[in-house]
Amino acid sequence: MSRIAATFERLRAEGRRAFVSYVMAGDPDAETSLEIVKGLPGAGVDIVELGVPFTDPMADGPTIQEAGQRALAGGQTLEGTLAMVRAFRAGDDTTPVVLMGYYNPIYNRGVDRFLADAREAGVDGLIVVDLPPEEDTELCLPALEAGIDFIRLATPTTDAKRLPRVLENSSGFVYYVSVTGITGAAAAEAGEVGPEVARIKASTELPVVVGFGIRSPEAAETIAGVADGCVVGSAIVAQIAEGKPVAEVLDYVATLAAGAHRA
């Protein structure tokens, strides 16, 4: 059983929802970033989503774009991100790690080499936002063959005709984007999200986790309550951007995780 599947199985047995946190690898610098990532499980994070910085992050809002720019300016690379996962795995062999990014760095490295290195480093899943289902042979299917989950995004505009194609080769969990637009753009509303999550769950046995627009423990609790979990990214990255000490960032993450786990 994969780490992701085992995590959701454990949470179901405990009657709890998942809390997924996103941070950008290398932000504000490699050393501080690794310290934050290592501290996330202790703050209540069930799945770590680790951003791979890229020069043209089309799905990301200003907060995460700027985090990627800081990371790139500090010399963060795909290789450095895999090294960060290896360092994390040295002390944690149970918390799933999902890499979120874009196809270009993977393509440049070579798909086969990347997947072998990612598997060896301890990566459990991939979210690659600029590869649609029509391009599954590029990375999705090879990833699945390598034992790495390929997590697909569904959005408010993923209609009944499109949804089966999106779900066809998805694994790990489905990431439901609660609002249209870029990350950090608007607040998620449980009354709108709930029916959409139910629609997706009627078509898949995979857990459905909701992200975008969650900034407070109360919002995490409300949104996680209508899904299998929630993701917080921009709000955490904003804390890092403000230069707050690692301990304060992790304290903030802990409040969000507690909210999600109350659901």
Rank of each mutant, 00 (worst) to 15 (best):
L34F: 08
T77L: 14
A83F: 09
A224K: 13
S178Y: 10
L141Q: 15
Q69I: 02
Y22T: 10
G44M: 09
Q65C: 02
V246D: 01
A83L: 14
A146P: 05
G211I: 09
G181C: 03
S234L: 06
F88T: 09
Q76H: 09
E134P: 04
D136R: 15
V179N: 13
G225N: 10
L250Y: 04
L11H: 12
Q239D: 11
Q76E: 12
T204L: 03
A160C: 02
Q239K: 15
K244Y: 04
V129H: 11
I4C: 13
R10Y: 08
N104L: 07
L82K: 01
A263K: 07
T183G: 07
D93A: 06
P105G: 08
T183M: 08
L126W: 01
V193A: 10
H261M: 02
P195I: 01
V253Q: 00
R162A: 08
T180K: 00
K244P: 07
I214Q: 10
G213Y: 03
E205K: 12
F212K: 08
Y176Q: 13
Q69Y: 07
A13W: 03
K201F: 03
G75F: 01
I240V: 15
R10E: 06
V177P: 14
R70M: 10
L256K: 13
R89W: 03
E49L: 10
L131P: 11
V226S: 15
